[in-house]
């Protein structure tokens, strides 16, 4: 490790130790130093990640590596307690269910629940050089069932449901001109506004699909439709981008609020 890294690291540690002690001294409650330590730790990790804006540095790398370990274990523990225990134990063992105080599900087909355990063990055999090929049976089950499921699910949700939702009325009931133009706003509750919205949706879908159709040259009427398609796509990309920017900004505001209010106490709660 370089000398400058050691000096920098020591300064960071001293700074946050001082911050902890100052915050602990000023805090009230049952265990002020303990809660001050936790808040200072969270603040340190927050600033450690922000330090990446300057450059990739040891403090950032520390936070990054710690996060990898903690989050991997978090999902593992969650998977064990929330998936494995409630879905498997009440099916395979009455004694274990009683010990875990879970309701035993007494069904004829419970013996089949040994299959996921066997497949899971086969999956773990991937770690063995000799028997690693056995894990392919578990992978075959996972991939086969998921692919079969996706085949139907995506045909229904991404294809058929989208097409049927695009069959919108492009003409409306005519009673009078006044009723037709009534409540004409972008909120789209009046008949004309609704019709206009429907026309934009139908045209947008058709022209958007034409833009993605590359088996024919985009010229003439086809080219015009394709151009309209790309306009609608650009509006969508702009809207989505703006939405994402604001989402990230609100996260940034959240972290700043934590630093300035919860840690430093500069802004009022």
């Amino acid at each position: 490790m370089r000398r400058s890294t050691l000096i920098g690291g020591s300064l960071v540690v001293v700074f946050f130790l001082a911050a902890w002690l100052i915050k602990g001294a000023g805090a009230s409650g049952e265990s002020p130093y303990y809660s001050a330590f936790l808040i200072t730790l969270a603040a340190f990790l927050t600033l450690a990640v922000f330090s990446f804006l300057y450059a990739d540095n040891p403090v950032y790398k520390f936070a990054e590596h710690l996060f990898v370990g903690v989050s991997a274990a978090y999902w593992m523990v969650l998977g064990f307690w929330q998936t494995l225990v409630p879905n498997l134990i009440p099916r395979i063992s009455r004694a274990l269910s009683e010990q875990l105080e879970l309701e035993y599900i007494d069904e004829l087909w419970n013996v089949l629940y040994v299959i996921p355990v066997v497949l899971g063990i086969l999956l773990l055999l991937r770690l063995s050089r000799k028997l690693g090929w056995l894990s392919r049976y578990a992978v075959a089950f996972i991939v086969g069932t998921t692919a079969g499921l996706n085949f139907i699910a995506y045909t229904r949700s991404n294809f058929m449901a989208q097409i049927s939702s695009t069959f919108l009325p492009l003409v409306g009931d005519w009673t009078s001109w006044a009723a037709f133009v009534d409540n004409l706003s972008l909120s789209a509750t009046g008949p004309l506004a609704l019709l206009m919205a429907n026309i934009v949706v139908v045209l947008g879908v058709v022209c958007g699909l034409i833009y993605f159709f590359f088996s024919r040259e985009h010229s003439g009427t086809f080219g015009m439709a394709s151009r309209l398609g790309i306009w609608i796509l650009m509006i969508t990309f702009g809207a989505s981008f703006g939405y994402t920017v604001m989402g990230r900004i609100s996260l940034l505001v959240g972290r700043m609020t934590f630093l300035l209010r919860d840690w430093l106490g500069i802004i009022a709660s």
Binding site: V201, L203, G204, V205, G208, Y211, F212, I232, I235
Partner: peptide, 8 residues
């Protein structure tokens, strides 16, 4: 417009 393009 977003619904239309997203649908495509």
């Amino acid at each position: 417009p977003n619904t239309a393009a997203q649908r495509a």
